[in-house]
């Protein structure tokens, strides 16, 4: 075979993804495609792992035996998603000589970010319900968009993850419904949690583009890594959840929110996007505590990693 130039390879690559073709880990890919994927998938993977922590706070305390079993299974799934995604990211990083250890170190130094929602406090059992119902609900919306991503290993992982996320949203909804139909105290707990999580849920989709799509997003769309904008996804979330929230007799901390028939979209109050930047850069209410938890468990397991390494070396 005649050696192709970089431009020829790129042209073939683009033609392939434009025709709906999928890229595998060992296929040729442009460097910036690889970099974008690593960034996206390692952030998604770490968010799953860091996302286990707020709910984990409620695992030992879940109110009934049935809920105890269900939330343990749910949080275990999240760790499993993290594992699946880190493996996809590891394969992409391998040619660059990077490993999972590098990803963890990037997390600890703040270079690798995780979703804003997992920096927030979860002070009551109702928060565990709202996380399952609305945070997982929001995640389903962003992940569904990426199911058809051009990178096949990510697409496969997402198919598995999305199937489980649907159970998570049901699990969360079941907790929320029990509280909504419950006592005065339970309803109050639920309302407080919804009010508390609302701005974080809006932020989850990222800042609105206002017609100016960032070069980053443009690249991801060109490479068929994503297909919808932040604002489009947020609108899908509103479509699905605002009516349900009102149906339960709950209120939102945004008196202006309404569906504008003429514009065909929801009008709502923007959250504080400066605060969003603060949160994702590690200055959220629980950022330090959760990162410390992960760091501490990582440091404490150093001797275990050493022991496992000694085993493999002996085997060679």
């Amino acid at each position: 075979m005649i050696a192709q130039t970089h431009d020829e390879k790129l042209a073939a690559f683009l033609e392939k993804i434009d025709n709906g073709g999928k890229i595998e880990a060992d296929d040729w890919m442009p460097d910036d495609y690889r970099t974008q994927l690593i960034k996206l998938i390692s952030m998604h993977g770490m968010s799953e792992i860091m996302g286990a922590l707020p709910e984990k706070e409620w695992v030992p305390k879940a109110p009934t035996l049935r809920r105890k079993l269900a939330i343990m299974a749910k949080v275990q799934d999240e760790m499993g998603h993290g594992q699946l995604l880190l493996r996809v990211a590891e394969d992409l990083m391998a040619p660059l000589g990077k490993t999972r250890e590098d990803m963890l170190n990037d997390l600890f130094t703040g270079r690798l970010k995780f979703h804003n929602v997992f920096h927030m406090e979860a002070p009551t059992w109702a928060d565990a319900g709202v996380i399952g119902w609305l945070v997982d609900g929001a995640a389903i919306i962003t992940q569904t968009m990426s199911l058809d991503t051009s990178y096949a290993p990510y697409s496969r992982a997402l198919h598995r993850i999305c199937a489980e996320e649907k159970f998570h949203a049901q699990h969360g909804e079941s907790i929320v419904l029990a509280l909504a139909e419950g006592t005065e105290q339970q309803r109050r707990m639920l309302q407080d949690a919804v009010t508390r999580w609302w701005p974080a849920l809006l932020m989850f989709f990222g800042p609105p583009e206002g017609g100016k799509i960032s070069s980053n997003q443009q690249m991801n769309m060109r490479y068929k890594i994503r297909s919808q904008t932040n604002e489009e996804l947020r609108q899908v979330f509103f479509d699905k959840y605002v009516p349900r929230i009102f149906h339960l007799g709950l209120t939102l901390p945004d008196p202006t929110i309404r569906y504008d028939e003429a514009a065909g979209q929801w009008i709502y109050q923007q959250p504080d996007w400066d605060e969003f930047k603060q949160i994702v850069s590690g200055h959220g209410p629980r950022s330090v505590q959760r990162l410390d938890l992960r760091k501490l468990s990582y440091q404490q397991a150093q001797w275990v990693r050493d022991a496992l390494l000694n085993n493999t070396q002996q085997a060679i």
């Binding site: 792992i49 079993l69 343990m72 760790m79 499993g80 397991a301």
Partner: peptide
């Protein structure tokens, strides 16, 4: 269940949690 999220590695977290669920 207190160990959840704190096991020596992610694979073990998943495995240990699954066993704790059996036990529960």
């Amino acid at each position: 269940s207190e160990w959840l999220g704190l096991a020596p590695h992610i694979e073990e977290d998943v495995a240990f949690s699954s066993m704790s669920q059996d036990t529960m």
